[in-house]
Every structure is written in C-alpha cells, then in structure tokens.
C-alpha cells in the first residue's frame, strides 16, 4: 500500500484497432483510501496523433507530463516537424532510463498513429524505460490485473473505431469498478487517420 505506485491510484489502457488506436484513463486522484479529486486526467497529447498515458505517483505524473511537453516543444522547434509516435516512445524510454537509480514512479503508455503510413502504434514502459511493444493492448496503473483480465477476454483484432470505443470503455469501466483506487469517470480517446474523438465517461461515482 505504501508503494509510490499505488498511493494515488489510477488506471490507463491503450488498444489497437483497424487503422485506429484508442487510449483511455480513469479520473480519480486519491491519497490511499481518501479520494481527493474526481477530475485528474492521466492522458496527455503531444502532437496531432501522439498520446501519452501516465499512471503512478501523481506528483510524478504532473512532472513527467510537463517534462515531455518541454522536450516535445523543443523537438518541434529544433526540427520543424511533429514528433512521430515511435520517436516519442524512444524519447520516453531514454528519459526514464536517465533516472535509472532514482526513477519517476510512473508507468507510461504511448498510443498513436504513424503520420506517414497511418499505422497504429502502442507501447508501454516500466518506470525505468523498458519498452513493451504490444500488437494488441497495453495496461497500466493500480487496476492492471483487472484490465488484463478484461482486455484479454474482450479485445479482438481489427476492431473499427466505434467497436474499439465500446471495447476499451467496457474494459476500463468494469476493471476500475473492481479496483478501489481507480474509477470516478474516464476519458477515452479514439485516434483515427485525420480525426481524434475524445469522450468523457461518467462511470460509477464510488
């Protein structure tokens, strides 16, 4: 319980669909069993189609998201182009490994589409930057076990945007309902070639 990863609670999941990807997170911020806020999104956008989900210690979530805001802005100014999801993933990895012996207590998830090909890309990391390239889904946060169970049974290949939205929403909602440290509503992003849809889910408020 005193693990830095589970003090504040929170959950995040990303999924691959047909020519689209989805990423979703819950909105709870807590201090152990006490809920402090029900509006603490854990997904951040770093380009037209590059998204980062961060679960773990809330102060590190805020710090790390700002750090990448800075790094991506510098990249864009220096290179006069938007950062690609794979490049961003490698940036996340190297930035986390830089803190190998004093890590940020976060479990990041990257989701996006390759600008040139429109190919879906998702990956997850441990807190020191080891990348988990997955073809199907990535989960992180205090509800990982529940999310793994949901995703493993609900996900299937080549889901369209609407089906993918339904799948990721049901996976997240039902998973966080069985985790006391996550929940209180959700944000869901569906990322398509030239469209990003953001939906807010109410969910159980307990």
């Amino acid at each position: 319980m005193s693990s830095p990863f589970s003090i504040n609670g929170g959950a995040c999941v990303a999924m691959v669909g047909k020519d689209c990807v989805a990423i979703a997170c819950d909105l709870r911020l807590g201090l152990q069993a006490l809920t402090v806020s029900n509006n603490f999104p854990k997904i951040f956008q770093y380009g037209d189609n590059v998204f980062l989900g961060l679960t773990g210690l809330a102060t590190d979530v805020a710090t790390v998201s700002d750090l990448f805001r800075y790094k991506v802005n510098m990249y864009r100014l220096r290179e006069e182009r938007h950062i690609a999801p794979t490049t961003f993933a490698n940036l996340v990895s190297s930035s986390l490994y830089e803190r190998r012996f004093g890590p940020y207590f976060v479990s990041p998830v990257v989701a996006g589409l390759e600008a040139k090909t429109g190919k879906p890309f998702i990956c997850g990391f441990d807190s020191i930057g080891c990348i988990d390239f997955a073809k199907d889904f990535i989960v992180s946060g205090t509800a990982t076990e529940q999310l793994f169970g949901m995703c493993e049974s609900l996900w299937e290949p080549d889901l369209g945007p609407d089906e993918l939205f339904e799948t990721i929403s049901q996976a997240l909602l039902n998973a966080v309902d069985r985790d006391a440290l996550s929940g209180w509503g959700a944000h869901v992003y569906i990322i398509e070639k030239d469209k990003v849809t953001k939906r807010l889910l109410k969910g159980r408020q307990d």
């Binding site: 220096r78 290179e79 490049t87 490698n90 940036l91 990895s93 190297s94 930035s95």
Partner: peptide, 15 residues
C-alpha cells in the same frame, strides 16, 4: 540516437 533511437536528420547534424 541514444535519445530517439534513430539517426539525426542531416540539418540537425549540420547544426
């Protein structure tokens, strides 16, 4: 390369 796991574009290297 150690940051992005890819080689720099020409202009970046030139800079």
């Amino acid at each position: 390369k150690r940051i992005y796991n890819e080689y720099p574009p020409t202009r970046i290297l030139v800079q």
